[in-house]
Write a protein that binds this DNA or RNA. Structure first.
Lengths: 195, 195
DNA sequence: TCTTGCCCTGAACACCCGTTCAGTTACAAA
DNA sequence: TTTGTAACTGAACGGGTGTTCAGGGCAAGA
């Protein structure tokens, strides 16, 4: 046997990425083998190398794609308005974006240490860019004189940690709708920055 | 060669645990081999099995010890007083306790998925117990009528995520002292619960 | 219909894994 | 000084690792 019936790169490629994402999130990058990923897709391990140069790059490209999507989606949702409006937009966006992407978030935060130094630097820069959009909102609120924030950098990290924590406990079949969660977290955020 | 000079279980045991803690935190449980841990301590891999039945138990006992210490220290620091006082005590305690234990915190949150199901349940129960101490404080504040918290369970998770996030960015050689951090986070917490 | 090349298999490469154990040595108690 | 045992070595076990590659089957274009 060699090439199998109905094999197409435009189908197999995404299936490999989806399987890798799921398995990395469930068991961790180091604990998942290329053979496991291949089995999940119904291939032999060697076939994966038609789609990725190596395992490291598979992880990196998943993380990079996630961060790129995050940044561009953020840029289009959190645009103009006064600082308070933009803060609310940011909170709503962050929650909505993260809620449906538990696996991606898990990997983006947990597997940083399994990236090669250069790859780490790339992802880290994107993460900082995302943090900076919130940081800029807090600075703007300070300039407008509406926020009460002693240290915008620290507050940024505190808020992002708080908001991202949602992914660790939220379940769609729980008693809270996404809108409920958004409201609770927006109120905490709002009060924390003194609005 | 066999037994080496100055070899003592009361010395080697803690050294193995310290090495495992450091390496697990740096590279992840799955990515660290028993041979790496042994090399760090200056032993052969086989010698580790005088101190742990297997690798899984080494991880579990590190996490268990951390959680036990956390709970007992918390119980002795956050005792009596009104809800606001206990909340401040909790925040101060959490920050102070977590600041010097970056490796332990990292493992306790990141390596849960590498625990066997029974071990996971044990650690998870301890984590819930810790969360419940904060939850009880929020409930007490509600009962006293001093906190403005719509959902104590969600607020608990939000606050703990926010506070624990400190370990991901705080560096002792930075521009902020532990007291500075405590003050910033206490103010955010205080305002978030409406005091 | 024939040919080109993409997609995949299956075997192999060299190496690392957790764990076990017979054997050896340093030390403490008698 | 002798003896018992705790502490450790070094080799071995079966199996898994990421990755490469020659070769073969399938589908699309000429």
């Amino acid at each position: 046997m060699a090439r199998t019936q109905g094999s197409h790169s435009e189908i197999t490629g995404p299936r490999i990425r989806a399987a890798a994402l799921k398995l990395f999130a469930a068991h961790g990058y180091a604990a998942v083998s290329m053979r496991q990923i291949a089995r999940e897709v119904g291939l032999q391990a060697g076939a994966l190398y038609n789609y990725t140069p190596d395992k490291q790059d598979l992880l990196f490209s998943l993380m990079k794609a996630h961060m790129d999507e995050l940044l561009s989606a953020c840029a289009s949702h959190v645009t103009s308005g006064d600082a308070t409006t933009r803060l609310k937009n940011f909170v709503d966006f962050h929650i909505q974006f993260h809620m449906g992407r538990a696996d991606e978030i898990f990997i983006a935060y947990m597997e940083l240490r399994n990236l090669s130094p250069e790859n780490f630097e790339t992802i880290e820069a994107l993460r900082r860019a995302y943090e900076d959009t919130l940081g800029a909102i807090l600075e703007a609120g300070l300039a407008e004189g509406v926020f009460d924030v002693p240290d915008p950098k620290v507050t940024t990290r505190a808020l992002i940690a708080m908001l991202t924590g949602i992914t660790t406990w939220y379940r769609p079949d729980g008693y809270l709708s996404p809108a409920d969660v958004s409201e609770i977290y927006w109120n905490m955020t709002r009060k924390a920055v003194g609005v």
